[in-house]
């Protein structure tokens, strides 16, 4: 039986790389007594595959993995068993049975939603208020792709100005060309057809895409003996306020778009056109994955929707 598991990765777990997450889940499966299937041979390994590896530093509430099991508890029991053994910063959100012959998570990936937002605290020292974005002083001469020093003094841009500029960048341009470094040298790619949606959002208005099902976070934490997290109960992976960019982009092995590429392109557009003072500063912004989609009949469907709850 194939099971699709959806999980969130946040807090300090953002520093754990993909291969270590695989090892983490292998151990977690044994701690939670999941009847997972093993491969044959002298060093048997669990039959487990992940949808789309998440880069170090990125948080997510929409990660997927498929596992093969011999037998299974109900979805609710399995969620409870897994969440009991999770470390702080990983929550299992869904545990669903896949129908016979379903495509595996990795080969299904077509798109993903991201939120890239200003961190509550950043190396520049300024805390942006809701409705404002950090504007680093332009320090590099125009046309140069060097990014401002992280320590550049920060200013602020009104939210409406940022929205207008983004609109002009995304809707107003025929193509969004970027240069990609590949093994064979430089390559020009048009991002425009690979970006399905792009907006400025107020984090206060971002609803968690996923409501925890069987348990809420408070229960998770009690189960694990962790201290109570009073605030941010329904979306522990996002700050309660601030400004961010929401985007839906093409994801997968062929045309994979990284959210940072979009924002660097926007940053360069702003610099070149003077549209607004936005400059992308690495480490000032947090990238957060919200969902991963597969394509079916021309429609994007969250990977989790392919599975069914086990009663």
């Amino acid at each position: 039986m194939k099971i699709r598991i959806k999980f969130a990765k946040y807090g300090i777990m953002r520093f754990i790389g993909h291969l270590d997450m695989v090892r983490y889940f292998q151990k977690a499966m044994r701690r939670a007594d999941i009847d997972i299937a093993y491969s044959e041979g002298y060093s048997p390994h669990q039959i487990m595959s992940f949808a789309a590896p998440l880069g170090v530093g990125i948080t997510s509430e929409g990660e997927y993995m498929d596992i093969e099991v011999h037998s299974s508890k109900s979805s609710e029991e399995a969620l409870r068993a897994l969440n009991e053994v999770m470390a702080e910063g990983v929550s299992v959100l869904e545990y669903r049975k896949l129908p016979e012959g379903a495509k595996n998570a990795m080969s299904s990936v077509a798109a993903a939603d991201y939120l890239v937002y200003y961190k509550e605290e950043n190396p520049g020292g300024a805390t942006p208020l809701a409705g404002e974005a950090i504007l680093p002083e332009p320090s590099a001469p125009s046309g140069e792709t060097v990014l401002p020093e992280p320590s550049a003094p920060a200013g602020r841009i009104p939210l409406s100005e940022l929205s207008h500029a983004l609109e002009a960048f995304f809707r107003g341009q025929e193509e969004i060309l970027i240069t990609k470094q590949t093994k064979k040298g430089e390559k020009t790619v048009d991002l425009k057809p690979l970006i399905y949606d792009l907006q400025v959002v107020d984090l206060k208005e971002v609803e968690p895409l996923h409501k925890l099902q069987a348990l809420d976070l408070k229960e998770f934490n009690t189960l694990r003996g962790l201290p109570d997290v009073e605030e941010k109960l329904d979306k522990p992976w996002l700050p309660g306020q601030g400004v961010g960019f929401y985007m839906k982009v093409c994801t997968g092995s062929t045309d994979n778009v990284k959210p940072e590429q979009v924002l660097i392109a926007f940053s360069e557009y702003c610099r070149a056109t003077g549209a607004c003072g936005f400059r992308f500063v690495p480490f000032h912004m947090q990238t957060h994955r919200m969902e991963i989609y597969a394509q079916r009949d021309g429609e994007l469907i969250p990977l989790g929707n392919f599975g069914q709850e086990i009663a």
Partner: peptide
């Protein structure tokens, strides 16, 4: 989010940031 002693900027430029963040399974709190 836990407050870490090192900023993201530092943690993302050094080798194996997991060496410095704690939070492992069975860590005593």
């Amino acid at each position: 989010m836990e407050k870490l002693a090192l900023s993201d900027e530092i943690l993302l430029q050094i080798d194996k940031p997991a060496r410095y963040i704690g939070g492992e399974v069975n860590m005593v709190r």
